[in-house]
Amino acid sequence: MEQDMDWNQRIARRVGREVARAREQLVDERGRRLSAQALADRCAGLGHPLDRSVIAKLEKGIRQTVSVADLLVLAKALELPPLALVFPVGYEEETEVLPGRSEHPVTALRWASGEGVLPPRGDAAEDVQSRWYETALFKIRHLLKSEETVRYNKRRASDHWQRAAGADSDEARQAYERMARNADEQVTGQEALLQRWRQELEEKGLAATTPPIFGEVPNNLLASQGGDRSPW
């Protein structure tokens, strides 16, 4: 039956399935499963009203289309990233990413989020990759990942210095100090690379600034979670 639907209908049905699945997993303020009406209320509160009947039709696969506006508001109301409603990672082995073309949901997600490309077909592999590397999205994503690496190594260095200060033997203190200095050296090198990368972006007319990270990981995370194990 689904094969007889057009692309818009198939996407709407998939989103509807994921909305229903997500709603089943949520509870309201009274500890009860989130109702369609409660979801509709959440959407209205976000500034894009969706009637309960519209949500019911979407979940039942009756609604034939779903707009980007609907998708964004539903995702926020369901406390999910929007693409989780389009590509059911963890629930399906294969999903239709383009009309008649199926890929693993993770592959589809990486492409849609700008993290990678769809596996090219035919002789276009090299051209697809080279074009992707030149996009603003790729360059900014690379900058973000580089900044994350710098923050991670700063936390590692801080954690090692703290452990060194509290070490109960000279041997342990010296080991932690070595690891701390190593992390500090990595930060120095990475920050120099980041500066060059930002200059390249600015030369291409791209914004080289990135937003602050919501919920920044505290410096003591590695110690509390055992992320960097003691050498002893």
Rank of each mutant, 00 (worst) to 15 (best):
S130P: 04
D6S: 07
H48C: 08
T210K: 04
G205N: 06
G215V: 09
L109W: 13
E202L: 09
E171A: 14
E216Q: 11
E148D: 15
A12V: 10
R173L: 10
T135W: 02
L109S: 08
G45M: 10
A56Y: 03
S53H: 09
P119H: 05
L34F: 05
H160I: 06
R21S: 08
G189N: 02
P231V: 08
L143I: 10
R30A: 13
F138N: 10
P88I: 10
P120V: 04
M179H: 12
I213E: 15
R42E: 00
T95M: 09
F138C: 09
A223W: 00
R121L: 08
T107H: 03
R110S: 00
I55Y: 02
S67Y: 05
A84T: 13
Y91K: 09
P211A: 14
E177D: 10
V89A: 07
A69E: 15
R163V: 12
A108D: 11
I55H: 01
L98V: 05
G215D: 10
H104V: 11
S102T: 14
P82T: 08
Y152W: 06
G45R: 02
S35K: 05
A112H: 03
R141N: 15
L46F: 08
G47M: 07
E94T: 11
E147Y: 10
V150S: 04
A77I: 03
F87C: 04
I55F: 01
R42L: 03
R21D: 01
L201A: 08
A20L: 07
K60N: 14
K139W: 03
S158W: 13
A108H: 05
V68H: 02
D70I: 07
P119T: 07
